[in-house]
Each structure stands twice: as structure tokens, then as C-alpha cells.
């Protein structure tokens, strides 16, 4: 079984109560982009992406409370955390946080985990308990987007000045 299938199966535990998980994952056509975001919000679940056009294999959307569990699953499967970043979807009043995972071995599989939080009150659990290296990435996301990682040991500005109270990567930020 390829690592991609193993990962889908392992992550499937998160969606056991949802229809999409019963089939393992919903598959997309090779050419397919994402579900048009403006019309209907994407459901939580796993999408297999075409690596050649997208650059990653699995696109997982989960809710905030599943985050720690999901990262635990990936940690146990031997994934390492590449980066944590935000995307400000200002039209939908939502902040997306993307977690990029990759592997050290030759079973190539890049996993992206997306979590969406309301823009006004972005709270996420920290995954520093699983990936120690998430510390700086979360601090950076906090700097740039104002996402608050609950339980983070040291959530102070990292790249911005110590007294920064602005979040420059928000779309409504004007310098």
C-alpha cells in the first residue's frame, strides 16, 4: 500500500461520522481545481490532488478541534512539518490556516491540512505538543494574521517588533 493510501486511511478516522470518509476519500478529476469556493464552502474531507499540476498530493480540510489529532496521525506516519501559514479570505470573512507536511523518505506524499476560522475571532489549538518546530511557525502566523494559538507556550511577536499590534498580511492592512 502506498503511503498516500495509508495516510488517507489513517486520516479517515477523523471523518468517520461523515459521508465522505466512508469511501476513503472523494476523488477529483485530474484536471480538477478546487470546488468553487465562492458558491459553496468546501466540506471537511480529503481530496487527492494531481501532483504534477498542484505540487502536493493530499488536500485535507478539517475543523479546528481535529487539528491536534490530525497532526498526531501525521507525526506517527513519519511526516515532518514544513510550514504553517495563513490565507486571508476576506470576502468569506474567514482565515484559513495551512499546514504543509512532507516526508523524509522516498514515498513522496505532501499533505496540506487546512483549517478555517472566523476572521473576527481566529482561535486554533497549538500543535507544538506534537511538532516542537511548530512553535516559530505559529508565532509567525500570529504575527502576520493575528491567529491565536491556544496553549502556545510563548506567543509573542517573532518577526515583527515586540510591540507590534498590527497584522500585515491581512488583506485590509494598509501600511
Amino acid at each position: 500500500m502506498s503511503i498516500q493510501q495509508t495516510t488517507i486511511q489513517a486520516l479517515g478516522e477523523l471523518f468517520s461520522d461523515q459521508a465522505s470518509a466512508e469511501n476513503g476519500a472523494e476523488k477529483e478529476a485530474e484536471t480538477g481545481g478546487e470546488v468553487d469556493k465562492s458558491d459553496q464552502p468546501r466540506q471537511n474531507g480529503i481530496i487527492e490532488q494531481d501532483y504534477r499540476t498542484k505540487g502536493f498530493h493530499l488536500d485535507v480540510k478539517i475543523s479546528a478541534d481535529q487539528l491536534v489529532r490530525a497532526s498526531q496521525i501525521l507525526f506517527e506516519l513519519g511526516y515532518f512539518l514544513e510550514s504553517i501559514t495563513g490565507v486571508d479570505w476576506i470576502k468569506e470573512e474567514q482565515l484559513e490556516t495551512d499546514y504543509d507536511f512532507s516526508r523524509y523518505d522516498f514515498d513522496l506524499c505532501r499533505v496540506v491540512i487546512r483549517v478555517r476560522t472566523p476572521r473576527t475571532d481566529p482561535h486554533l489549538p497549538t500543535i507544538t505538543t506534537v511538532y516542537t518546530g511548530a512553535n516559530w511557525h505559529e508565532r509567525e502566523a500570529h504575527d502576520f494574521f493575528g491567529i491565536i494559538f491556544d496553549g502556545h507556550p510563548h506567543l509573542i511577536p517573532l518577526l515583527l517588533p515586540e510591540d507590534a499590534d498590527f497584522h500585515p498580511l491581512l488583506k485590509d492592512f494598509k501600511a
Partner: peptide, 23 residues
């Protein structure tokens, strides 16, 4: 390395055979 996501010569110096050029 895995917990911090170290890559490059730092990971390779720890016995991880990881290089994007090959992987």
C-alpha cells in the same frame, strides 16, 4: 529533525536520506 522539520545538510548529517532533488 522530524519534530522541527529540519532539512538539507542538517537532516542529512543526522542520517536522513532526504534531498528534494532525489525525493
Amino acid at each position: 529533525c522530524q519534530r522541527y522539520g529540519a532539512t538539507g545538510p542538517v537532516a542529512r548529517g543526522s542520517g536522513l536520506n532526504y534531498d528534494v532533488r532525489k525525493n
